[in-house]
Amino acid sequence: MPDRSARIVAAGLLAIVLHAAAVAPAAAGDADRQRPERFGIRLLEIHENRLDDPRSHAFIVDHVNPGTTFTRRLEVFSTSSQRQRVSLYPGAPGPAGNIALVNRVGVRTYLDVGPGGEPPTSFRIGEVTAGRTDAGQPRLVAEVRNTGERAVDLEGEVRLSEGPSELSAGPFRGTRATTLPPGGQGQVTVLLGHDLPAGPWNFRLTLRSGRVSRTATGTITFPEAGERAAADDDPSPPVLAACALAAVAAAALLVVNLRRFRRRPLDGEAA
């Protein structure tokens, strides 16, 4: 079995930084000021054994044995008409000399170095809660814990079915990914349609990180603005046991009362 203690898991950033000299450039014309300008960096090369991993299309995700070297091709682009000075580096050094940091973008890196196979990626969905934003838009919020040994970038999708008048809705997709380190926990929020009826609805929430996905189902009714309602999942074994005990106690009490009723003498009968 591989020695996990010898494993190094690194999560970093291969960043490109745009610097500006201390001397201000000449003022641009109105047309140049109105035109949106941006610069960026993107990954051009994906290892063939990770083509089915959505994270590998945006991030550098890999597992290598100690002493292994590899390369990745990147593209740096700018839509500005002016000449730009950029620096490419791993990590996040601060500004130096008379150069000021203006902006930074990067390609996230998840690199595992160690003997044996890749460490497991896993996460667990906890409570799912319905609510509304301050503007009244319906949303689902899921509590999630990273139970694996690699960071996860969680993206959510919600489908609704069997709503009022047998309506169905979705899929609704989250607009931002939630990143959790190993052992970390957080929330994943998915915004739904503004005009959805309150319910009740059956929901199916699917969360994905790369090749790994988990699903939670249940019944939900969206609250009024400012209120909060939890999803009605299947009852847990302790809840079922408590209900069974309560049913047995109620049945025993009913039998006792029936026996007392039968023994009570009627009017005109001898006691």
Rank of each mutant, 00 (worst) to 15 (best):
P200F: 04
V212R: 12
V190R: 02
P181F: 09
R176G: 01
P171H: 02
W201M: 09
F203E: 04
P200T: 08
G174S: 13
Q187L: 15
R211Y: 07
P171L: 04
V188K: 12
L207V: 00
L207C: 01
S168K: 13
V190W: 01
A216W: 00
T215K: 03
R208F: 09
S213W: 07
V188Q: 09
R214H: 05
D195K: 09
A169R: 15
P181L: 13
P182L: 06
P200A: 06
P182R: 05
P197R: 12
N202V: 02
L167M: 15
S209Q: 07
G174F: 12
T179H: 13
G174V: 09
S213F: 05
N202A: 02
R208I: 07
V188F: 14
L180C: 05
T206K: 10
R173F: 10
L207Q: 00
P182A: 11
V188P: 03
V190F: 03
P181G: 11
F172A: 02
L196H: 06
V188R: 08
L196D: 08
G174D: 12
F172Q: 06
T179F: 15
Q187F: 13
L192D: 06
L191Q: 11
D195Y: 09
R214V: 01
A198C: 05
L205P: 06
T215G: 07
G184V: 06
W201E: 08
L192Q: 07
S213V: 02
Q187C: 05
S213M: 08
V190N: 11
G170Y: 07
G199T: 05
A198L: 08
T215D: 04
S168E: 11
T179N: 01
G184C: 11
L205M: 01
